[in-house]
Design a protein around this nucleic acid. Structure first.
Lengths: 215, 215
DNA sequence: CGTGACATCGAACGGCGTTCTACGGTAGAA
DNA sequence: TTCTACCGTAGAACGCCGTTCGATGTCACG
């Protein structure tokens, strides 16, 4: 079982979601496909268990972070830890939090985030919404990363900078009167960093939360 | 071409992402699968074009909204319009904004959101981050909706309320000392409304933005 | 009438998730 | 030792998928 999950995660890490097939997994484990079905009842469950396996690492990292006196700062640190993990393993974004029945670690992570809100002066509903908002920001930003990267970028024939530049180029070439914003933003886009973008979004949400908590 | 897209969207509306296959689409159109490849070079492009087709409706709705004196209120209205469209068509969340080359309407929508930030006192980078944050919130929350609903819920043998209740039950049954937050939140979850949840998250982000724009 | 360009079709291919039946090992009962 | 359950294992087979490709039709224009 453990071996199955580690191999599954390895496949996902190496080549993304489309690389995890029962046949590939069986080959890597040196067994038959039928064997995998002994441990797992279908692909969804395999994905859920693999995701939970990977989230386990995030959970221990989050549990290792000591509480400061500022719950919101702690929320921020946790969210960033989670984001970094997803940035490392983009496939996570597609499966994270899909099924908390199987994904026990995801539930525990959700709990850890929520516990910080218990230290804030909020109603239960506000707490619920706050945690949803934070995971929403993480997942929403990470979903961009989760998209299967164009082949030309994977095989190294075009690097990320050039790829973004090409996009920025088309954007800049758009009519400046019809597309004043996209036009203005093209440069930012060309040199944007996903992590900065995520943190900016997160901080907007957390600023709003701080306002709401009235502290 | 137009007919292909309308049929594709209809298929997606009726039974979600997994229902759109070339064979099903060909049957519905009364043609062969090969014909579809005449108009579209592969499934990704089909999905992108179908998505763009659907987003077109959102775009005209958004363009119909007159500017108020408060850009942030306008942003809010646009984001809600977009969310409602995705709630109607959950499959949109998976494909929205995947490829702005093909999805011209998505780009135009992005522009419309961005133009509101031009009315705010922000740096270009802050504007870029603000719009990304807003689309992130929409996509992040809508991603929950996009998940293929369990079969039992689709065929009506279990309704949404009962489904949520069952989850809330397991959450309530968790140890209150190990899971104080999840325990406290179970009731909120049981009667939560996705739209309220989204709006709460959106408002946190917009409050943060309002703070940043210093107005 | 001929000849391109445009458009349509569906059989065929390889890969996928999933099922099913058959097979090996091994622990305890006889 | 032999028999018998039972736990794992194995891989062929099924049906569906995206995609390719050569055959076929249609039709305007020289």
């Amino acid at each position: 079982m453990e071996a199955v999950l580690t191999a599954a995660v390895a496949l996902l890490d190496e080549a993304g979601g489309s690389a995890l097939t029962f046949r590939a997994l069986a080959t890597r484990l040196g067994t038959g496909v039928g064997t995998i079905y002994w441990y797992v009842s279908n692909k969804d469950e395999l994905l859920d268990r693999a995701t939970d396996h990977a989230i386990g690492g995030v959970l221990t990292a989050v549990e290792g972070q000591p509480d400061s006196e500022d719950p919101i700062a702690d929320l921020r640190a946790m969210a960033i830890t989670l984001f970094d993990a997803i940035a490392d393993r983009p496939w996570l974004s597609a499966y994270f939090m899909r099924n908390t029945d199987i994904q026990g670690n995801s539930l525990r992570l959700y709990e850890k985030l929520g516990e910080q809100t218990l230290r804030l002066d909020l109603t239960p509903r506000q707490r619920f919404h706050a945690v949803s908002a934070i995971t929403g920001v993480v997942v929403g930003t990470a979903a961009d990363l989760g998209m299967e990267v164009p082949q030309e970028l994977l095989d190294g024939s075009v690097d990320r900078d050039a790829f973004l530049q090409r996009f920025a180029e088309t954007w800049r070439s758009l009519d400046a009167t019809n597309f004043p914003f996209v036009h203005q933003i093209a440069d930012e886009f060309a040199e944007h960093d996903d992590r900065d973008q995520f943190i900016a979004a997160l901080d907007l949400t957390l600023d709003g939360l701080r306002l709401q908590a009235g502290s």
